[in-house]
Structure formats: structure tokens, C-alpha cells
Design a protein around this nucleic acid. Structure first.
Lengths: 318, 318
DNA sequence: GTGAAAGCGCTAACAA
DNA sequence: TTGTTAGCGCTTTCAC
């Protein structure tokens, strides 16, 4: 069914080696009519190179794996991945997507078997992922390789500074309690801690919240200081705490201040309006794609300036 | 770096053929101690078979491609694909994801190159996709092959029946507004329409809602009948409408009734408690994976009965 | 300018 | 019960 390079060679009356060369960008080494014959035959037979054969020979495949963030995956992100699919296809790469939440061990197996040309992530790799990628010696591209900033710590700092600048003197950090490991929370907690130290405040109190009212209520009750200001792992945590505060009759932000993270869709309809931080995933993506192509050796111009991926969304909860 | 089957053979003192057989499920053909040596050596060397080598030899790879629907891709769907990733990995297959929207030609190229063992989709294949799959002779699994039930229509029906049984006589369906066509929404709308016709009610009114307060307010204002009952595309839409109803001073469910879909985390902390429908993705995924595995010839027992994937979560908004 | 030869890692048929 | 052999489709020296 599928034509092989031998078929093309036979059809064009040349050798397989010639077909390979011509079709891989070395056409100018050959007589123009030879190259033309090869192109014509390939087209006539509908030749598609076998990824397996090529990968076996080259030691690595043309696949690029994109790790999908565990976040709501709306229109923008879908556009983005479709765009990436097309852009990479233009450069001879095939994009495949992969849930980033899947255990690192299955990532490892996939990499060992598939030998992708690169692994790409919109959010910083977890240390487990980094370890796997390093060990397998795979080209890894994530936002920090774009800009070298520890985004999670920066997020924590941004949350902390927002709270302190609004006059709050007592900080807390609310982790999302989850069966899944949360690689980002600790870096963000560190960011909050940094701010507390720099501003001469007490160490932040740390609580765990899962997304249900009971959990949020006990977490809220555990906060010792009245007027405490809570930096939350994400908007869901923040909204759980806000719901709990409403149940307890606490006034926001006077009795408890809350800042979220993500600017989730639902945070946009929250009342009071949730103060939160937005991560510009689309900007991160286009920067990432550019640096990916560059790392792969495909010549794509890098954007001149590094965009600011984080921005504060003002609200009424701080 | 990566051990090959030769390395394992050398280490175990046997031939490559033996290693291959033992590691591919024919261990019992060999002397127990031979098999044991092979397993031990493979483990000791951290042997991972090369997907390329195997695919080249077998003519098709161990990859299973899942086509991602063009729908908002929330936590539930992500959990589903993570679940599938793990289950398939247990059977030696590697799940990769692919935007279904990408042009059929790129799908074709991917299939030609990657030679996947199967292509899986939660939504029915488009005719262009079917054509590609048929021509490439790839095993294709989509919901119609899993069961004859159109789950999205069933969801709409269930929402509609819940509303009607609670005494509501005027139905509406609220789509999640998206620039792109949403393959699930229309089937659900049909389900609602079915119910209206069966019960002799007027055709449901249809509105579009995006997840922000302004949009929800105008959608709500567009609902012509007081006491209308709205089946929502998902919980986010429902919660947006609830927020809008609160702003407008409407009482729920008296002035407007709302039923969601998904039982999202946040719907669990909503006040009033959102009436919604839960789709048991784990059950759906295992059914899908089971039929996939069966089609692949991997002997996985199919669940005896078709599980009920849908269940009503009672609340106070209907 | 072009082709012959070798080999990537694997597995299936066959031989021993 | 195990090993030998051959070859999947491709690319890359190297020789002509």
C-alpha cells in the first residue's frame, strides 16, 4: 500500500541512496533532471517516508512531544496546539500531545520508546520530569529555558507583594490538597516566604485546602490571626476559602484577604471579584515554540523581547 | 545509554531471539531458569524496547492515537485521558493525543509515518477522518463502536427530564459560547428538544453563554419566560447564570431553574447547591479502553453490563 | 553525480 | 528448548 523509498527509486530509475539524498534537502548535489525525476516519482507514488525506518536509522524520531498542562483547555490553547502542529509539520516534525499529569514513569517509557526530537511544556517541568528528560538526554523546552525565571517563585512573590502593598501584615499560603503531587506549590510558598522576610514580617502560616466546603471551613478556622491575608495556590482554592468565609460571616478583605492564581473562567464571575494573577499561556507558548524551533536547529526568528507572562488582575478580595 | 536486546542477550548469555520471545509473552516456551535470566538481565540493564525497531519489524507501532474533541477540555476529560494513558501503558500501548481539528491531511501524514495500532476518538469520526483511516487501513474506535448510545443526547434528555419532573414547563438550553463549533452541545440540545416534544412542551429556547458576568447577564435577560428552566452545557455555564440571577435579584429555582453538567469541583462548593449530572469518566474510559483493547486483540474482558455513565446529583437549583 | 554496502533494533520463520 | 538467519525502511559513508 505505502510506497517505500525503493519503490520510488525503481520508478525513477535511480538508487535508494539518491532518493534519500534528494528528498532530504540535498537535491542540488545531483543533476537537475535526476532530482526532478525523483520528486516526480515520489509524488506519483504518494511516497511518505516511514517514521520507524528513519527513527531507527537516525536514533531519534521526528516526534515532538508537548506536555499538556493540567488546566482548563479552552479555545486559545487548542488554537495554539493546532498552530504548533502545523508549524512543526512545516519543519518536518510531528507534534503529539501528552497529559503532563501522567506519572513520570510512563513519560520515561514513552521517551525511551519513541525517542522524540524534543519535549515541550508550557509550564515548567517538574523535577521528576526534568530528571527523566536529562537522563534520556532529550531536548527539553519549557518557559524557564525561554527566560530562566523561576515562575512559580515569582508567582508567590507577586502574590505576597500584592498583599503586603495592600497593607496586610500577616501572610499565609494555602496549598491545594490533592492526591496528585503538587510540584508548583512549594516554590510559590517560598515566594511568599521571601516577601515576608524582606518586609520583616512573621513567617507565613501554611494551610492545605481541598475543593469542598468542609475542608475550606476547617482550613479557614485554622488560620490563627484575624485579618490574615492568604495567597492561594489557585483560584479554586481561593474561591473555596471565600465560600467558607461567607459561611463564617467573615468580611473580605477586612477579616480575611485572599489572592488567587490563574484567572480561571469562574473567578471572573465571582462576587466579590477575586484578585488574582494571570499566567499568559499563549504568550508563553509562542515564545516556547520559537525557542523550540531554534533548539531543533530550524531557523525561526526569536521574538525580540521576552513578554511578561504574569500579570495582576485586580479585584476586591485584597 | 539505552540497553538493546543484544545487550540483554549478552548479559543473560542467550540469543537475541530468546530475549525477544521471553519478553514478548512466550516465556513459557523456555526453560524457567532461562526465562528468569532474561527477565533479570532486562531489569538489571533497564532495557526498554525500541519502538522504532519494533514498529519497523512489525509494520505497525504500539502507539494509539486519541483524537481530542473540539470542546472545552476541563478536568474531567483530562482525567479521562490520563486514565487511558495508564491503562493502555499497562497493555504495552502508548497513548498520544492529537487535535482532531487539524486538517485531515496532517492526520494522514501522521498515520502514514507513525503507523499507529489504533486511532481512538470520543466523538464520531468525521467522514474525512473515516476516509483517511479506511485508506490507511488503521483500526478505528469511536463511540458508536463502543455502544449504540449517543451519550450527549442522553445527557440532554436527562437534564430535560429532571427539569420537567420537577414541574418546569418551559425549557431552555444554554450553550457554552465558543467561536468554534462544539460537537457535544448540539447533541445535548437535541436531547432537551426530544423531551420537550415528548412532553408536549414548546420548543426549548436556546442561548449562548460565555463564562463572564456580562455575557451571563445578557443571556439571562434574553430568556423570555419567567420561571424558565435552563439546561446548561456545563457547570461553569450554570454557575455563570446563577451569578447573573443573583445580580438580577432572581430567586432560584422559582424565577429561573438551572441544571448543570459535569459535577465540577467548584460546583460542589456552590451555594445554592447546583443540581447537576455527573458523567462517570472512569467508567467511560474503561469501557472505551476495553473495546479498544478488544479490537487490538489484547484479551481484556469486556465489562459484563454497560455501566450507567450518567447520574443525577441533586441540588437546590431545580 | 551516483550507487553499493552496511547497519540502526527488532522479531518471526525456520533449523538445530 | 534455543539459536541462526533474514529483513522491515531508512540514511550515510565511501567508492566509483
Amino acid at each position: 500500500m505505502n510506497a517505500t523509498s525503493s519503490d520510488v527509486a525503481k520508478h525513477a530509475g535511480v538508487s535508494r541512496a539518491t532518493v534519500s539524498q534528494v528528498l532530504n534537502g540535498y537535491a542540488e548535489r545531483f543533476a537537475p533532471e535526476t532530482a526532478a525525476k525523483v520528486f516526480a516519482s515520489a509524488a506519483a507514488l504518494g511516497y511518505e517516508p516511514s517514521a520507524a525506518g528513519r527513527a531507527l536509522r537516525r536514533g531519534s524520531s521526528d516526534f515532538v512531544v508537548a506536555l499538556l498542562p493540567h488546566t482548563t483547555f479552552g479555545g486559545n490553547l487548542q488554537d495554539l496546539f493546532e498552530q504548533m502542529t502545523v508549524t512543526l509539520a512545516d519543519h518536518g516534525y510531528t507534534l503529539v500531545l501528552r497529559m503532563s499529569g501522567s506519572a513520570a514513569s510512563t513519560l520515561d517509557r514513552m521517551i525511551a520508546g519513541m525517542k522524540p526530537a524534543a519535549v515541550f511544556s508550557l509550564t515548567p517541568f517538574t523535577s521528576a520530569e526534568q530528571e527523566v528528560l536529562r537522563r534520556r538526554n532529550v531536548l527539553a523546552v519549557d518557559p524557564p529555558s525561554v527566560s530562566a525565571v523561576d515562575y512559580n517563585r515569582a508567582i508567590g512573590r507577586m502574590q505576597g507583594l500584592t498583599l503586603v502593598d495592600a497593607g496586610h501584615r500577616r501572610l499565609a499560603f494555602a496549598h491545594l490538597r490533592d492526591e496528585r503531587q503538587d510540584p508548583f506549590g512549594f516554590a510559590r510558598e517560598e515566594g511568599i516566604r521571601d516577601v515576608a522576610h524582606e518586609r520583616g514580617l512573621d513567617d507565613p502560616q501554611v494551610i492545605d485546602v481541598s475543593i469542598d466546603l468542609d475542608s475550606a471551613l476547617s482550613a479557614l478556622d485554622a488560620l490563627t490571626t484575624p485579618g490574615i491575608a492568604v495567597a492561594c495556590y489557585n483560584d479554586d482554592v481561593a474561591m473555596s476559602l471565600l465560600a467558607a468565609a461567607r459561611v463564617r460571616g467573615l468580611e473580605v478583605p477586612r477579616d480575611v484577604a485572599v489572592i488567587g492564581m490563574d484567572r480561571s473562567d469562574l473567578s471572573r464571575i465571582a462576587l466579590p471579584r477575586l484578585t488574582t494573577i494571570e499566567y499568559d499561556i499563549v504568550a508563553a507558548a509562542s515564545a516556547g515554540v520559537a525557542s523550540l524551533l531554534k533548539a531543533l536547529g530550524a531557523g525561526a526568528p526569536l521574538p525580540a523581547s521576552t513578554p511578561a507572562f504574569l500579570s495582576l488582575i485586580p479585584g476586591d478580595t485584597v
